[in-house]
């Protein structure tokens, strides 16, 4: 799915390798879109007190603390041959830790609606409230949504949710109002490290591929793109990511599939089941008329 003929499909490339976890994107999003407060909780999940995407969090910065060995020598049983002065002189410059201690790796990633090419939320919406914009993004029309809640369990990424007091479904609009007047979305605008990059999807894909190559050359072999491939189960994401670990570590599904891909088969099975029910009832009447 591309945008209109004259409007290219727009999206986000979120490069988590340069995210510093400042949450400027979360704040800018809340401010610009006038999203209500949704609880001030201290979770103990590293610096993450937002916890998840939902009706009142359209950007969510995930924080993952990992212990990873830094590839130093195996710990020796005795320490006679360790030159402590030489080791001390390397402090701060040598990543290797002679005693085999591990060091903390801190992953941060700003998550957002993926604006799927094949969007389950949009497919299942019975009112037509969810629609595809001229920028190829997926947006809820709040004056149409009747709060049926179908989009909530349909989204394979756990993005869209219903606001309890208001009853309607809400999610990232990729700042549809700002795009309309040629501005970039609030989160991308506020990101100080350009972890969130906004632009025509095609261009972002090229930029992302170059970035992965660069990181691999530098030895960061963990770097991988997530959601950029048009061949995945949702036809590719309009908002895709560069990750440094498996997707599920960040709370993302490793192989999401748009549920409506199986819908024709579902209707076929339901039709067969309906026929069976009718046959079953007929069988009930067919025997010994009374």
């Amino acid at each position: 799915m591309t945008g209109d003929d004259d409007t290219p499909r727009m999206g986000f490339f979120t490069d988590t390798s340069v995210c510093i976890g400042c949450k400027a994107c979360e704040v800018a999003c809340k401010e610009w879109n006038a999203i209500p407060e949704d609880g001030l909780e201290l979770t103990g999940m590293s610096y993450d007190n937002t916890q998840r995407l939902g009706s009142d969090s359209w950007r969510h910065v995930a924080f993952i603390e990992q212990r990873k060995p830094f590839g130093g020598p195996e710990p020796a049983l005795t320490h006679e041959d360790v030159d402590v002065f030489a080791a001390a002189s390397r402090l701060g410059t040598d990543p290797g830790s002679p005693d085999g201690h591990t060091e903390l790796r801190w992953l941060m990633a700003s998550d957002v609606c993926k604006h799927c090419t094949h969007a389950a939320c949009l497919d299942v919406c019975p009112t037509g409230s969810l629609f595809r914009t001229e920028f190829g993004t997926v947006v809820v029309q709040e004056d149409v949504c009747n709060g049926c809640g179908y989009c909530v369990p349909a989204c394979p990424y756990g993005v869209i949710d219903q606001r309890r007091d208001d009853g309607r479904a809400w999610k990232c609009t990729l700042c549809y109002d700002r795009l309309g007047v040629g501005m970039e979305p609030a989160c991308a605008k506020s990101c100080p490290t350009e972890s969130i990059q906004f632009g025509p999807l095609q261009e972002l894909r090229e930029r992302a591929a170059a970035r992965v190559r660069q990181l691999h050359t530098a030895g960061v072999t963990d770097a991988r793109l997530y959601g950029e491939s048009p061949d995945d189960g949702v036809g590719g994401d309009g908002a895709f990511f560069l990750l440094l670990d498996e997707p599920e570590v960040y709370g993302l599904p490793p192989d999401p599939v748009v549920t409506t891909r199986d819908l024709p088969a579902m209707w076929r099975h339901a039709a067969l089941a309906a026929a069976s029910l009718a046959a079953l009832a007929a069988a009930g009447f067919a025997r010994r008329p009374r």
């Binding site: 998840r52 809640g149 909530v152 369990p153 756990g158 709370g251």
Partner: peptide
């Protein structure tokens, strides 16, 4: 592995 054991999906409302 998961993100703090949190669900990937949003719970049906």
């Amino acid at each position: 592995s998961s993100y703090y054991g949190r669900p990937v999906l949003n719970t049906p409302t």
